[in-house]
Design a protein around this nucleic acid. Structure first.
Length: 269
DNA sequence: ACAGCTCCCTGCATGC
DNA sequence: TGCATGCAGGGAGCTG
């Protein structure tokens, strides 16, 4: 499932391809994945071209020359990328943008937890993103101020995009393991130095995943078919019942914040 | 205001 | 082999 590193990989691919391209046509195959465009394909960047490709947390924004903005969210199973226009349309392809030089930008999402949102201008994007927490790649010393007073579990706070933007279930567990903090612990019981360690853990895990081209967990894949190599280095995610890579104790698992959560009872306190 | 829950959806793994 | 079942989870929206 795409998290920040995967979305960043998509942003880079799409940015380098789109900034020197024109959009010739747009084909919306399922309108219910699009919100805000009033069902007019002219509003999906057709004719305007893309001036800028931005990312905040797990959200991607394509800014057109006409000031309209398209926000793309990949959800669980979304894929977004450039392919040859002649490539077969795979199932669950919901929107395609025909580009010059016989290429196509496609949004594919079997489970449809993702989607595309049309915004009328940059102000709407600024407003929308101001409600997100700081980007997980760019956490400063005071990032924890927003969550430290909360009584909920630290993992619930990490998954809350309004607290920190970009952390999903995989990297929440991985970061908590690296920082030695139990996912269930209340934020109020996490010390300042532990928040600092957690912030560093999140950043270093995100950066190494990006360097590895994004992880290849289950449903995530690039439209081009390439895969990443980060999966092999996961510490706890998906390893319930297996031995901790540090102390060999059997990894525990239970639901926290409604999500499957894996941790080591010995290494995490 | 906050925290916790349900729901949306399809693909895959599992079990009979 | 084939079918039914359960599980995976990001985020909106609802509830207590």
């Amino acid at each position: 499932m795409p998290e920040l590193p995967e979305v960043e990989a998509v942003a880079r691919e799409v940015r380098s391809a789109l900034l020197r391209s024109s959009i010739i046509d747009v084909h919306v195959r399922r309108w219910d994945v699009v919100t805000g465009a009033a069902r007019r394909r002219e509003r999906l960047l057709l004719g305007s071209g893309v001036r800028e490709v931005l990312r905040r947390g797990k959200q991607l924004a394509l800014c057109g020359h006409d000031d309209a903005v398209i926000v793309v969210q990949l959800g669980m199973t979304g894929a977004f990328g450039i392919v040859a226009a002649s490539a077969p349309i795979e199932p669950h392809t919901h929107v395609t943008w025909r580009l010059d030089r016989s290429r196509e930008l496609r949004f594919v999402d079997p489970r449809r937890f993702g989607g595309i949102t049309w915004l009328k201008d940059r102000h709407e994007l600024v407003d929308r993103w101001s409600r997100l927490g700081p980007d997980a790649l760019d956490l400063h010393g005071d990032w924890s101020a927003r969550v430290a007073a909360s009584r909920r579990a630290i993992k619930a706070a990490l998954l809350d995009q309004h607290a920190v933007a970009g952390v999903g279930n995989i990297y929440a567990d991985e970061a908590l393991a690296l920082a030695g903090i139990r996912p269930q612990r209340a934020c109020t019981r996490v010390a300042r130095h532990e928040f600092d360690a957690l912030g560093h853990a999140i950043g270093s895990i995100m950066r190494s995943a990006i360097a590895g081209g994004g992880s290849t967990i289950r449903t995530y894949r690039r439209l081009s078919g390439e895969t990443g190599a980060f999966q092999a280095s996961l510490r706890v995610y998906g390893r319930a019942g297996e031995p901790c890579r540090v102390c060999s104790r059997t990894l525990q698992s239970e639901l926290v914040a409604g999500r499957t959560t894996v941790w080591c009872d010995a290494c995490q306190r």
